[in-house]
Amino acid sequence: MLKLDKVSKVYRTTEVETLALNEISMEVGPGEFVAIMGPSGCGKSTLLNTLGLLDTPTSGSYSFFGEEVARRSERELTALRRDRIGFVFQSFNLIDDLTVAENVEVALLYRKVPGGERRRRVAEALERVGIGHRAKHRPQQLSGGQQQRVAVARALVSDPSLILADEPTGNLDTVNGEAVMALLTEAAGAGVTVIMVTHSLAHAAVAQRTIKLLDGRVVSETLLAA
């Protein structure tokens, strides 16, 4: 489903050149739950941004659901992202000026989903993550764990093929972290491909495969014992 072939990403300024990804090759199949680990600065977030079409590789090829996307325009990438991908971020990234329901609804706005159906799907998503009773609250009124559930609901509401989670439990305590991991595992079990960046060995162990990065390269892959 997702195939990176010798993908590199170089960040250039007038004085400095940083090689964030160094000829990475990897494949992720449909419905897989993959964890990516590595020390700070190893390229985890860059890899996630590339996989999520938020950034384009400097070289190499990236096949996204059978389509080569490494050299696509921003407009084409936006369309692919809109139709296929959901995101969960470490710092939740909810919009402070919108209610919980409105935040989740944003994921459907740009897909031209009619109003009635949007409201139905938002309600379902909120119930699925157990936060339906807070639909009219603002993010500032929720705890960290609750905010992350909203973020997961936002990622799920558009029925994505792929969820990319960048340290989704990084700002949460153990209990809330476990709750979020349960949601992601449930999504994976429903056939959604989940790729998660994490520092936590315990959470990585939930995934079927763990890829370790160092200095922009894949240094190891570990399969979870069945």
């Binding site: 936006t78 992202r81 809109r82 995101f87 994921a107 740009y110």
Partner: peptide, 16 residues
């Protein structure tokens, strides 16, 4: 910025 980033990540085009 975060709101813009989220909207773009969720599929908003610059025109939107």
């Amino acid at each position: 910025a975060v709101e813009v980033g989220v909207r773009k990540a969720l599929g908003a085009e610059p025109r939107d």
